[in-house]
Simulated assay, not measured.
Amino acid sequence: MLDCRGKPVIGSVPVEAAGTRLSARESLAFGVPPAKPGTMFALAVAGGVTMTPRDGRQVLFGRNRPEVHVCVGEDDRKVSRRHGELVYTAEHWWVRNTGRLPLRLPRSRLLFPEEDPLPLAEGYTPLFVRGSGGREHLLELYVSGADGGRPISRHQEVTEPPRTWRLSGDERLALIVLGQRYLLHEARPQPLPWRQAADQLAELRPGQNWGPKRLEHLVSGVRRRLSKAGVAGLTKEEVGEPVGNALNDNLLRELMLSTTLVPPDLAALDGE
């Protein structure tokens, strides 16, 4: 459909001549067609748009199809009618939240209404809009880079192994006990309290003088070692006050994401 000036439109929102409609046939995670560097691709289940970079250009997204470029969560009233916008300025695309609920970006980064916009890196970025009943609506974003094309296929290349962390026998057992709720896939896991974990270690390894202070000292050593190696969120300076369980929570999540600890390690709790 064209507007009165001959521009293609989505609903009643005109797409500038530099932008085109995008059908929801394939995920942007697989890459994008060759395009001018800095071109924005935005795609939801109902379709999307592409937009070449120019200062001041906008891509609007939200529930109200006639008034946005990309419709997200059309049947979900928890999604705002205009929930956010992508704006090109200062040689970057920026995402701003104009809705009521936060947007979720990679690494669990939440962008709240009225916060400063965040710049988008080149390549693929999944953005989630929280809806009703635990639903999350996906908006896929892709900013084309200098090569302007799809990633190179590497079907036959050897898979890169994850970077696992070296642990001593005592460190491994202590962290399995401390992080057993994570290994059990509980919905909202937390580390065991020091006393409870130390008592369980004393049962598993009698005669080794396990106590809360020894356990805390051992785990702190692992955090320091991984922090020096570049793992974020393992120091009080990074987390801020109140610290609570944040340091050990971040440590245990890193150990699981890196496959240093895996669910079969729970066999150690049975003395195996």
Score class of each variant (00 low, 15 high):
3 D>S: 06
7 K>V: 03
8 P>D: 09
8 P>V: 14
10 I>E: 14
13 V>D: 12
15 V>Q: 06
16 E>F: 13
19 G>I: 09
19 G>R: 08
21 R>H: 13
27 S>N: 05
27 S>R: 06
27 S>P: 10
28 L>S: 03
32 V>L: 04
34 P>H: 08
36 K>M: 15
36 K>V: 14
38 G>E: 03
42 A>N: 09
42 A>M: 12
43 L>G: 02
46 A>M: 07
47 G>Q: 08
52 T>S: 15
55 D>I: 05
58 Q>S: 10
64 N>M: 07
68 V>P: 08
69 H>E: 10
70 V>H: 03
74 E>A: 15
75 D>V: 08
78 K>T: 11
79 V>R: 07
80 S>Q: 07
88 Y>I: 04
88 Y>H: 15
90 A>T: 05
94 W>V: 07
96 R>W: 08
97 N>T: 03
98 T>C: 09
98 T>G: 03
99 G>W: 07
100 R>F: 11
100 R>Q: 15
100 R>N: 12
102 P>C: 05
102 P>E: 06
104 R>H: 12
106 P>L: 05
107 R>K: 14
108 S>V: 08
109 R>T: 14
111 L>W: 12
116 D>K: 14
117 P>N: 11
121 A>E: 14
121 A>V: 11
122 E>A: 14
124 Y>F: 15
125 T>R: 07
128 F>T: 11
129 V>M: 11
130 R>M: 14
131 G>H: 07
131 G>A: 12
136 E>V: 10
142 Y>K: 03
148 G>W: 11
150 R>N: 06
151 P>E: 02
154 R>A: 13
156 Q>E: 14
157 E>L: 11
158 V>E: 15
163 R>N: 01
169 G>M: 04
171 E>L: 03
174 A>E: 02
174 A>T: 04
174 A>K: 02
180 Q>S: 11
181 R>S: 04
182 Y>L: 00
185 H>E: 15
186 E>R: 01
187 A>P: 01
190 Q>K: 07
190 Q>R: 09
193 P>Y: 04
194 W>P: 00
194 W>F: 06
196 Q>S: 12
197 A>L: 01
197 A>Q: 01
198 A>F: 06
199 D>F: 07
201 L>W: 09
206 P>T: 02
207 G>F: 09
207 G>N: 09
211 G>D: 15
214 R>P: 00
218 L>Q: 10
220 S>T: 15
220 S>D: 14
223 R>P: 00
223 R>Y: 07
225 R>S: 15
225 R>D: 09
226 L>Y: 02
226 L>G: 12
227 S>E: 06
227 S>N: 13
227 S>C: 08
229 A>Q: 15
230 G>V: 07
231 V>S: 03
234 L>F: 05
236 K>M: 06
237 E>D: 12
239 V>F: 07
239 V>K: 07
243 V>C: 06
243 V>A: 04
244 G>Y: 04
246 A>Y: 00
247 L>D: 01
252 L>R: 00
255 L>Y: 01
261 L>I: 00
263 P>E: 09
264 P>R: 12
265 D>F: 03
266 L>C: 06
268 A>Y: 11
271 G>W: 09
271 G>L: 13
